[in-house]
Design a protein around this nucleic acid. Structure first.
Lengths: 224, 224
DNA sequence: GTCTATATCCAGATAGAC
DNA sequence: GTCTATCTGGATATAGAC
């Protein structure tokens, strides 16, 4: 409930932030379309019309809710990819930091994934889509560096591989959120650490060159 | 446009089937909620009210659209898992047949994945969810058989592994459908065969025991 | 089996008083 | 910044004639 206070946001933006938090909860739980502005308003004890003093449209709320998460995602990817470590260390660090961010902002990530068709279609989200593409390219560069270094196996398709991995991690966000009885959703038992080790292992075994299959998974590094 | 004529469907069900095909196209392209019954009606040159002669509700259309795909999915999984081959051969066959089905009924699969929250929430879909769970368990059994046989590596978490793989393949259905300019969606160039080999390799390298990392990917088998 | 016509409801959004 | 009040449109679904 207590939310971060990022740079540009003044103390007085709190009201706005409370609304956004309610919106995020609704969007993540029931979806963007299924959520009505009245529900959001009720959650913060306000009337629906009053929301329009803070936001021009419901879509603007959607953009605000996911904005920081997407921009931070790009910043992380570029920072790690641009560091001076070997490709495997960077790759593992990308996965670990991504999963940590995903756990911290699980609602935003679930929304990004589940409502991706809105981001694809509306020009309002072009900058966010651009940030996503830059994250993608950063990951891809790390993978290709690893192939050049001989750490990863030679025949790998970097485009398919990275898009598969990113979809895997992102769909995990929604899945991680659901404690209901769905057949594929009994994961409340897994800690973030356990999930991180699982994904790091799963992915690394896939991309490594065969002769390195038994090597231990390297630790994450802290990248300034 | 010309659709398959499955067993139980009489020639006279054609009208109904034409409506379902239109609904499937809309649901896959724009989502279930964003699709109106009027749009479906327009697509088949009928008035919206007339649809209710064929279906009681819009949700019933949704159920009908995905029903066969889900039931066939279970049938495939049980058939392959119950066959007498080694686990790796069965596992590869599961992946290959799943991707073939996915390509043939790409709309149904995309809908199943994108609208999964409806299936989770409504009791009308309990039987479909049950079928999904049975598919899941069949895959899981094959994986665990492989661990016992020493083909797959010992420490593997069968629950996490199968749920990850199934989400990977299923999210691929939606992705495979999008030819638009999304950063992660430039795949129209990939043939089904290329994608199948990619996924089979990606998954198999992840689950195999380290000493078998360099073995070739086995062929699919035909399972009666 | 489709049409005409419409009931019923609720969505997103707005205007202006306080 | 929130409220009162309401517009406007479009949604699912129904009833009964043809």
């Amino acid at each position: 409930m207590a939310e971060r206070q990022t740079g540009t946001r003044r103390k007085n933006g709190d009201r706005r932030q409370v609304i956004l938090d309610a919106a995020a909860r609704r969007f993540a739980e029931f979806g963007f379309e299924a959520t009505t502005v009245r529900q959001i308003a009720d959650d913060v004890n306000i009337l629906s019309g009053s929301l329009y003093h803070h936001f021009a449209t419901k879509e603007e709320m959607l953009a605000e809710v996911v904005r920081d998460a997407v921009l931070d995602q790009r910043e992380r990817a570029l920072r790690i990819a641009g560091s001076a470590h070997d490709a495997e260390t960077k790759f593992v660090t990308l996965i670990r930091e991504e999963l940590t961010a995903l756990a911290e902002r699980i609602e935003a990530y679930a929304i990004i994934f589940n409502e991706r068709k809105f981001f694809r279609r509306s020009p309002d989200f072009l900058d966010l889509m651009k940030a996503r593409k830059e994250s993608f390219e950063a990951w891809r560069n790390v993978l290709e560096q690893g192939v050049r270094e001989g750490l990863f196996h030679a025949g790998i398709d970097s485009y398919l591989t990275i898009s598969t991995i990113m979809r895997m991690l992102n769909s995990g966000a929604d899945w991680y959120r659901h404690e209901d009885g769905s057949p594929l959703d009994a994961m409340a038992d897994y800690s973030l650490e356990a999930l991180t080790e699982f994904y790091a292992g799963f992915v690394l075994r896939s991309v490594r060159s065969a002769e390195r299959a038994a090597e231990p998974i390297p630790s994450s590094v802290v990248v300034a």
